[in-house]
Nucleic acid binder design. Structure first.
Length: 584
RNA sequence: GGUCCCGUAGCUCAGCUGGAUAGAGCAGCGGACUUCUAAUCCGCAGGUCGUAGGUUCGAAUCCUACCGGGAUCGCCA
């Protein structure tokens, strides 16, 4: 349990106890009571708003409640001072011994420190990437891929049972285009001169091997068949090849999904019809005519009766079409069935990671989930905004037609997996992100990836040097945890322990809010405080981590920085970044 | 026109789901290297938190309206 929750528990106990003597404090709802770190550390280590939020319920003045609480809190052994501040805040200052104890606990927990059970094993389905299987992944897919994967790591760390899932859009018109494009390459492989790839087909070189494979397997047999017969064959081969390509691209980023879910399967199994029958039985499907969009009317608008889902009953702006004019399903229909299937597989919490262009899809999908699950299922949709690639301060222009789009693989090959992953997460998901090739490979503090990696490597380096300076000393985590940590007494050292102690709560919040970027920022601030402390030793040699003539203080300081390294490493692993032990 | 996202220092962004005097980095200026890899650090300076209301003990944070930027808007996926 994190220290804030632990102290809230203590506080709740105290309030219940006080209620025995003071009836106005008995039986109060304590949900709004918080214990947190004050923004300004001059105010103390912990602050609670208890007196402020209880004043109305209790019918007492905030400062009167606070006075009672302070007396009781002050009696706790960990509390060095408790005082009333401002309108009725209670600030607590904890003893140095308490913080030393926390540090020992961090080292004993090691890589498990901060892992929590707030998820309580509840099942979460995280769907991310889901790029169309029509070619290699391009850089635009990268952010969502990294975000989803890190979120999955984060939620698993917080005690959720996570399933990483990829929805294969293998049923739309685009896969037929893929099949025709591959067929052309097949004819090319048989020796035919195909010339320019016609407009509307995929021109990419990546289909050349698919054509060759088809030729090797089928010879020229497919040439004699009508399209209706060769298309399914070519399509399936091409699809398999494209998914292979995509898996390899994802592997380059260290990403692998547990489930690849085929849209085609939904069509084949009758799941769509079954799901829509269910909605129909709820009276949520009807045939109607939609209003044209106000203000901006499409040129070819004509009123037309359609099969519609009553999305408006669940907060959407308009009801949504389920069938195209030719009678086939829209994209929405199988997606409804897909989410229903997730729910039936036991996922009451679902997270979808979408690109910026799918913002308009959120309400209808949430509406569908609400309708399908009777409000039992929760769907959160995270939108990852665009990534702007920068090179030499210039925007890298990409065009599919000109064939100048940058692939995910090119970016990873150029700057490395760790840099890509960290940079993609060093921004809130709903803010656009500039990705500068020069910056992410730079070895300077401008580059946050490097900055954090360097802090970790520097700690490893100090520990290596310490092993030389004290060859007989046991520098293992267990031994360091048992060092005389009371030798850590400077304001900076204690501040660093406090920061480390805030990690579990921070990670829990990040997981609950589905915000892995907070982990990246936390790692950065931890690195920053560490670098600052390191430099204290430049000004005053007695403040160095390794003090040759003082073994005890050295061991205590090594314990501190080792804990910093542990937490940075834990954070980086959640982000999918390898903590470096050495910089070269 | 509808909907969603964004608007915080000259620039790029955090701000822990309502707390106390709003924080970093870059850029600018001034400092610290016979080191534990200075690949770093310290100091100075810099903000009407887009605007106006509202909610309350308390608002960058929640609500409403407007302004500005972006995304999207019946059959694409």
């Amino acid at each position: 349990m994190n220290i804030f929750d632990a102290f809230k528990d203590r506080l709740v106990t105290i309030i219940h106890k006080l209620g025995e003597a003071e009836p106005r404090l008995a039986g109060l709802a304590l949900d709004a009571v918080t214990v947190e770190a004050p923004r300004d550390s001059a105010h103390g280590d912990l602050a609670t708003n208890a007196a402020l939020v209880l004043t109305k319920q209790a019918g007492m003045k905030p400062r009167d409640i606070a006075a009672l609480l302070v007396t009781a809190l002050d009696a706790l052994p960990e509390v060095a001072a408790a005082e009333i501040a401002g309108p009725g805040f209670i600030n607590l200052r904890l003893t140095d011994a308490f913080w030393h104890e926390q540090l020992g606990a961090i080292l004993r927990a090691g890589g498990e420190y901060g892992r929590s059970h707030v998820g309580a094993g509840s099942k979460v389905n995280i769907e991310y990437v889901s790029a169309n299987p029509t070619g290699p992944m391009h850089v635009g897919h990268t952010r969502g891929a990294v975000f989803g994967d890190s979120l999955a790591n984060l939620m698993a760390y917080a005690g959720f049972e996570v399933c990483r899932e990829y929805y294969i859009n293998d049923a739309g018109a685009q896969v037929e285009v893929l099949a025709r494009s591959a067929y052309l390459r097949y004819r090319e492989a048989l020796g035919e001169a195909i010339g320019e790839i016609p407009e509307g087909l995929y021109p990419g070189e990546y289909l050349v091997p698919v054509g060759k494979a088809l030729a090797a397997e089928h010879g020229d047999a497919l040439c004699a068949l009508p399209e209706a017969e060769w298309l399914p064959i070519v399509r399936d081969t091409a699809l398999a090849a494209m998914m292979e390509l995509i898996r390899a691209d994802l592997a380059a980023l260290g990403i692998s999904h547990e489930v690849f879910y085929s849209e085609r399967e939904l069509h084949a199994s009758g799941a769509i019809e079954k799901t829509l029958e269910f909605l129909d039985s709820q009276g949520l499907i009807y045939v109607g005519v939609l209003e044209p969009p106000k203000g901006k009317q499409p040129d070819d608008w004509e009123p037309r009766p359609q099969t519609l889902f009553k999305a408006t009953e669940f907060g959407d702006d308009v009801d949504r079409a389920l069938r195209k004019s030719d009678g086939s399903w829209t994209y929405f229909a199988p997606d409804i069935a897909y989410h229903y299937d997730k729910f039936q597989r036991g996922f009451t919490t679902m997270v979808d990671i979408f690109g910026a262009d799918h913002g308009g899809y959120i309400k209808r999908m949430k509406a569908a989930v609400a309708a399908l699950t009777g409000g039992e299922g929760a769907l959160d949709i995270k939108i990852c905004q665009l990534v702007r690639l920068m090179r030499d301060g210039e925007l890298v222009k990409m065009s599919k037609r000109a064939g100048t789009f940058v692939t995910l693989r090119e970016v990873v090959d150029e700057v490395g997996r760790d840099a890509v992953r960290f940079m993609m997460l060093f921004r809130k998901n709903d803010a656009p992100l500039d990705f500068d090739f020069a910056k992410v490979t730079e070895q300077s503090r401008d580059n946050p990836v490097f900055y954090v990696q360097y802090a970790h490597a520097r700690i490893c380096s100090v520990l290596r040097n310490a092993a030389t300076a004290f060859p007989d000393a046991d520098l293992g985590d267990a031994a360091l945890a048992g060092a005389d940590l009371s030798r850590l007494g400077t304001a900076e050292e204690l501040a660093l322990i406090r920061l480390l102690a805030s990690w579990p709560e921070m990670a829990e919040r990040a997981a609950r809010n589905h915000e892995p970027h907070r982990i990246a920022f936390f790692c950065h601030s931890l690195a920053s405080e560490f670098h600052a402390l390191w430099n204290k030793g430049n000004d005053s040699p007695q403040l160095r981590f390794i003090v040759a003539e003082d073994r005890d203080v050295t061991l205590a300081r090594l314990a501190l920085i080792r804990a910093v390294a542990l937490v940075i490493a834990t954070g980086l692993r959640i982000l999918g970044v390898e903590p470096a032990e050495e910089m070269r």
